[in-house]
Amino acid sequence: MQHFWVVGTDTDVGKTFVTTLLMRNLQKQGIHVTPYKPVQTGEVHDGEQSYYYDTTMYEKYSLQLLDRENLNGYSFKEAASPHFAAQLEGQQINTQRLLGQMQQLQQKWDVVICEGAGGLFVPLDSYGETTLLDVIVQSKLPVVVVTRTTLGTINHTLLTLEALSKRKIEVLGIVFNGDTGSGMEQDNIKTILRHHPLPFATLPKLKHISHIMDLAITDTSLFERLLKHETSIN
């Protein structure tokens, strides 16, 4: 069965949005899909209600019933790096626990999409000895890289791809998120693909998150790669 990570070149590049979008589009193919967020931070307060954006997005836009208790490993209230958010609550992130949860989910679902936190080198412990990238390596799963289209994306994306390549992590493709169609953005995309001719999808900048329901990526080379990879493994 096919399982993979959605990782970002930085924080706030749209990992949760892309994870949710890929989940929906795969579900439309009749595939049993669940997202999984190992560590989420930043509790949102809306009046008397409190929630976490990532897992709430999954549940709100999923086309299948999800198991709420198994959507993530750790949730910390402070909107900060996982290691610091955990430290504020007197906790430590057990990476073996996360890997165990991923393994269990892979036994139950056709596709598990694991969403990263921040960039690849975000620390998961106070000493900086364990990073998200270390967990990805141990999971032995391929990745989809999410990046911006705006100024700075070339450097961030190439560094991310280099780090993955050095660790022999398979990259299924790239998602260029938030495109407005400017000449600079188109050149950024072409430049990155010239260095790394990978399957990709370019997503427009949406006026409202609810427009995710109307967004299809089934005709992109990235989605074709995901389906081929899933079929070849099954």
Rank of each mutant, 00 (worst) to 15 (best):
Q2V: 10
Q2F: 15
H3K: 02
F4N: 12
V7E: 01
D10Y: 01
D10E: 11
V13F: 09
M23I: 10
M23Q: 15
R24M: 15
K28G: 11
G30T: 11
H32S: 07
V33F: 06
T34K: 09
T34H: 09
P35N: 05
Y36M: 03
Y36H: 00
K37V: 10
Q40P: 03
Y53H: 15
T55P: 05
K60I: 02
Y61W: 13
Y61Q: 03
L63N: 07
L66S: 13
R68K: 10
E69N: 06
E69D: 14
N70P: 04
N72Y: 14
G73K: 14
G73L: 00
Y74G: 01
F76D: 07
A80S: 07
P82M: 04
A85F: 02
A86E: 02
Q87D: 14
L88T: 01
G90T: 01
G100T: 09
M102S: 10
Q106G: 03
Q106L: 01
K108D: 13
K108H: 13
W109C: 09
I113S: 08
E115G: 04
G116V: 13
A117W: 01
G118F: 06
G118R: 11
E129L: 15
T130I: 15
L132D: 03
L132A: 12
L133Q: 02
I136R: 11
I136T: 06
V137N: 01
L141E: 06
V144T: 04
T147P: 08
T147M: 05
R148E: 09
T149V: 14
L151R: 07
T153E: 03
L158N: 07
K166V: 00
K168F: 06
I169Q: 00
V171F: 06
L172H: 07
V175G: 05
G181C: 01
G181Y: 05
E185Y: 13
K190A: 15
H196N: 08
L198H: 11
F200V: 08
A201G: 06
T202H: 05
L203S: 04
K205C: 04
K207P: 00
K207V: 01
H208V: 13
I209N: 12
I209K: 13
L215D: 12
I217Y: 07
I217Q: 03
S221G: 10
R225Q: 15
R225K: 15
K228M: 09
E230Q: 15
N234C: 10
